[in-house]
Simulated assay, not measured.
Amino acid sequence: MRAQALLLDAALVGVTLLDVLVHVDADERSRTAIALLAAASLTLRRRLPWLTFLITLPATLVSDAVFATLVALYTLASLTRRRVPLACCALAVAASDITSWSWPDPDFADLTDPVGLITATYSLATAAAPVFLGQLVQARRELSLRITEISETRENERALLAQRVLAQERAELAREMHDVVSHQVSLIAVRAGVLQVGSRDPETKEAAATIRRLSVQTLDELRHMVGVLRAGGSRPTELTPQPSLTDLPRLVDTSGIEAELRTDLPEDLSPPVQRAVYRTVQEALTNVRKHAPGATATIHVHHHDGVVRATVTNTAPCRPALPLPGAHHGLISLRQRAELLGGTVVAGPSAEGGYELRLELPAERVLPTRRDA
């Protein structure tokens, strides 16, 4: 924009110099100097419009080179809202145009003569044109700004409406989770506790204890999620700490599956990579628990040549799986998470009759922070 403005000013100065060349005799040094000064002053028209107009006005008074004065008057009209001073400036330009100033005997136009009256009318119209044009440009500029403000206001209103609708949906979802899901998980925990206390079979007691522990953990997570949903974005809410590779042993130990964990990973992997590995192992163990009852699992997580690989393999199930509800979105979510990190997830039956899930991700490292002394 600044380059365009400079080019426009240079073009106006060039046209003004051409106007001076055509209408001012080079032998008349005083008039030529006044006209050239008026042309040079156009470079100040954006920053000092009133001063520019005052400098260009004498050129109209002493010569027929009026282009610089008209440009200065247009600039003044496009930048100010003061109508009375603008009208006075236009009258001053018209009066200077109809006056032929030759010191010491200035020649004023005779307004009683038809020719003089026509000349005065033409001069008034010539002076009024840049004023009207400048005011029109100013009105267009203000209208554009107003339209932009209205558009921004409407965008803000739409955003606020969307936030309000989202807050209502979050509150309704939180209410459903609290009234339905939390209640049912609480019943599972209670029944598991009763089974743990009343059963004499060690395996049954252990299974009931696992169910009760997982139910209690699920209730804690549900309560936190309900709190996050009820906050509705109105205030900052503390989120549950995200899992990392250090949480893998506890995940395997509390999975209720006989599983072997082998890891060989550096400690400076980025949090997204660590979360992706954790969620992959978690989803794989969940699938083993649901679809391969009695199976054992092997989890191997290692790093080689800048690639993190996580493999979860389970044996064939020992007994038929119970039909459990599911949305079948687990593997899809894992693949999407891996693709976002530049990796892949492959899952399918193994040669031994079990199932295998493999994750490969580029190993993004956490850069050490340097503190300047």
Results as ranks from 00 to 15, higher is better:
189 A>E: 07
233 G>W: 12
6 L>E: 08
8 L>F: 07
130 P>M: 12
360 E>Y: 09
191 R>K: 14
254 T>C: 09
165 V>N: 12
28 E>C: 05
81 R>V: 08
232 G>K: 08
352 E>I: 11
220 D>K: 06
323 P>M: 07
22 V>D: 11
86 L>S: 06
251 L>C: 12
67 F>P: 06
49 P>W: 01
319 R>V: 07
365 R>N: 03
181 V>P: 00
212 R>C: 02
49 P>A: 00
225 M>S: 05
150 I>Y: 03
158 R>L: 15
266 P>A: 04
277 V>K: 00
39 A>H: 05
110 D>N: 07
66 V>N: 14
5 A>H: 07
277 V>C: 01
104 P>G: 06
131 V>S: 09
225 M>F: 02
97 D>F: 13
43 T>Y: 12
214 L>W: 00
359 L>P: 01
23 H>D: 15
123 S>V: 11
70 L>W: 04
44 L>I: 06
203 E>T: 08
138 Q>R: 14
227 G>W: 11
188 I>C: 03
114 P>T: 10
183 H>V: 08
57 L>Q: 09
65 A>E: 02
287 N>L: 11
210 T>N: 05
362 P>T: 13
107 D>S: 09
208 A>H: 00
167 A>C: 14
21 L>K: 04
336 Q>N: 11
145 L>E: 14
271 P>V: 10
335 R>W: 01
240 T>H: 05
305 D>P: 02
254 T>Q: 15
368 P>K: 04
330 G>W: 11
117 L>T: 06
255 S>M: 04
262 R>I: 08
181 V>M: 06
109 A>S: 14
346 V>M: 08
107 D>K: 06
282 Q>N: 13
230 R>G: 02
342 G>N: 02
300 H>T: 08
9 D>Q: 10
94 A>V: 05
136 L>E: 01
257 I>T: 07
197 V>D: 00
36 L>N: 04
193 G>T: 00
86 L>I: 12
230 R>S: 10
18 L>M: 13
105 D>V: 12
184 Q>W: 07
54 L>Y: 01
284 A>L: 15
200 R>E: 04
74 Y>T: 02
17 L>C: 08
139 A>D: 09
